[in-house]
């Protein structure tokens, strides 16, 4: 009980389970989410909390293009938290994996441990940073910056434990999958499959 602040894996007592569902087929690779995140979170040039890649497949004229928006998966079982030697990386009671910069020594072990390449080293602060699900916006009742700006509403965000939330309904109504689930990370960012 008294240890819940330093939850390693899914805590026993959770306030929420914030999650995101991304419809990558609705993604245009317009990069609005990427710039929105950059602006919202002062992400330095060269580093990214989120990204979109555009993969071309096939031979003319039978071609297809696949967009892959990526970011921290807010894992239920996050290897980044497990390897952190100082406890700076942790899961907050809403299920968000965060870095407490005050405790981070900048060893960058978590960067290696993340299977999604979701973390980056912030040269100026000497600490590691990552997607926070825009925790500071959530505190104001605002959705994350990348979510509100998306022209196609390809991102749905909310509390997956609240059955009435849009995100819970999206998970319930569609077949969704996590990326690299074989890694045992149990992502909280889902993709429509």
């Amino acid at each position: 009980m008294s240890h819940e602040g330093r939850v390693r894996t899914a805590p026993v007592e959770r306030a929420r389970r914030y999650a995101m569902v991304i419809d990558d087929r609705a993604c245009l690779n317009c990069q609005a989410c990427v710039v929105a995140c950059k602006a919202e979170n002062s992400v330095p040039i060269g580093s990214h909390r989120n990204w979109v890649t555009e993969v071309e497949k096939g031979r003319f004229p039978f071609v297809s293009v696949q967009m892959e928006p990526g970011q921290c998966m807010q894992c239920e079982n996050p290897p980044c938290v497990r390897v952190c030697p100082t406890g700076a990386s942790f899961i907050d009671p809403d299920g968000i994996v965060l870095v407490n910069a005050a405790d981070c020594i900048g060893c960058r072990y978590c960067i290696e441990a993340c299977p999604y390449g979701a973390r980056y080293f912030h040269e100026e602060s000497g600490t590691v940073d990552k997607c926070t699900f825009c925790r500071h916006r959530l505190d104001q009742g605002q959705e994350p910056a990348c979510v509100v700006t998306c022209p196609t509403r390809a991102r749905i965000f909310g509390d997956a434990d609240d059955p009435d939330s849009e995100v819970a309904r999206a998970i319930a109504r569609n077949r969704v999958e996590g990326r690299k689930e074989e890694a045992g990370t149990r992502p909280n960012v889902f993709y429509l499959s």
Partner: peptide
């Protein structure tokens, strides 16, 4: 340290509902 983290991200500060476009 853990307590500090906890204080920093205390869920009681988050309002109950997210409002799209709020």
């Amino acid at each position: 340290d853990r307590v500090r983290r906890f204080l920093q991200y205390s869920p009681s500060r988050a309002p109950s509902a997210l409002v799209a476009g709020r």
